[in-house]
């Protein structure tokens, strides 16, 4: 592996300054052009099944209960109870106090292959002391989470404390070690500029992220096409530089099959087909899954059914 920085704030600052800027008009234009790709028939049905496998089925509400978790676990294993040819989702994503019950439910329902992802480090704001963030992550790992979705300290990033952001990610990565995949949430809606998105993507990758993730889902805008495009360019370039393939997770605002397919087109044409699998691309979503199922039924039967033909959760 090529070491691009030594971890000091000085080296981070120097390195991130060498990154070329992102021209907003150009990035928006490229994303808009790719949104016109017309995905039909066989390629559409391939894309729908791929998107289902990429879904991190998510419930992140204050009102979450064990009952709610039971329901989404059942859905995660067999998204369509009438058609077992539908693949299971990529992961189930919950708050860390529900990790244990999620794991148990998945295991009991034939979903032992589905990882449990936990949001940690004082999700969604990241505003807590460092020991709290560490404990938050430890709890999730001890309860059986094999994917950790951490948030970065956006305040620190925006005020130029790059070393602090780097060290937090690095410490969480050390905790995860071989036990869990680390997804680093940039919360791009708070970073605002595409230059920041590119810099934060690199910062996270340099600190050891396995995935870079757009958003918490609690801030809008979230996974807009140009933001995902900038992040896909970052993982593509980082792979060329270091040989390490980092994944991307788009989360927030992806609700329809059309939205999901646009994301797959971005992956295909920006990062490349090597990223086009659940190991390297995920979509954080809840409502999306039902629309994917409805479109899948439409392709198979030739007509649309209604919302009562897919399960609530």
């Amino acid at each position: 592996m090529v070491t691009l920085v030594d971890g000091s704030e000085e080296s981070l600052r120097t390195y991130l300054k060498t990154l070329p800027g992102v021209d907003k008009v150009g990035a928006d234009q490229r994303a808009a052009m790719l949104a016109t790709r017309s995905i039909k028939t066989t390629s559409k049905s391939w894309a729908i099944d791929m998107a289902i496998q990429m879904v991190d089925l998510t419930t992140l509400e204050g009102a979450d209960t064990e009952g709610k978790v039971r329901a989404i676990c059942a859905k995660a294993v067999h998204p369509d109870p009438t058609d077992f040819s539908v693949p299971s989702v990529g992961a189930v994503c919950v708050y860390n106090d529900l990790v244990k019950v999620t794991r148990q439910n998945l295991d009991a329902n034939g979903g032992s292959h589905i990882p449990v992802a936990a949001v940690t480090t004082a999700f969604p704001s990241g505003r807590a002391s460092f020991p709290v963030k560490i404990q938050d992550t430890k709890d999730a790992l001890d309860d059986g989470a094999t994917e950790i979705d951490m948030v970065i300290d956006r305040g620190a990033f925006l005020s130029g404390k790059l070393g602090l952001v780097f060290d937090e990610i690095k410490s969480i990565k050390e905790l995860c070690a071989d036990r869990a995949h680390l997804k680093v949430i940039l919360e791009t809606g708070e970073l605002v500029t595409y230059d920041n998105v590119r810099k934060a993507s690199y910062l996270a990758m340099l600190a050891g992220a396995d995935f870079i993730k757009t958003s918490t889902g609690k801030v809008t805008p979230a996974a807009t096409a140009p933001v995902v495009l900038v992040m896909l360019e970052a993982v593509r370039d980082y792979y060329v530089q270091t040989g390490l393939r980092i994944g991307v997770k788009a989360a927030g605002g992806i609700r329809t099959t059309k939205d999901a397919i646009k994301q797959l087109v971005l992956v295909n044409e920006i990062a490349g087909p090597d990223w086009l699998n659940p190991q390297y691309f995920r979509i954080g979503a809840s409502a999306l899954l039902n629309d994917l199922l409805l479109q899948r039924m439409k392709l198979a039967s030739g007509h649309y059914s209604g919302s009562n033909y897919v399960t609530l959760d």
Binding site: I39, T42, A47, N268, P273
Partner: peptide, 10 residues
């Protein structure tokens, strides 16, 4: 894992 490339149908 499905490694089939994402072909765009006509």
């Amino acid at each position: 894992m499905d490694k089939k490339p994402f072909e765009y149908a006509p």
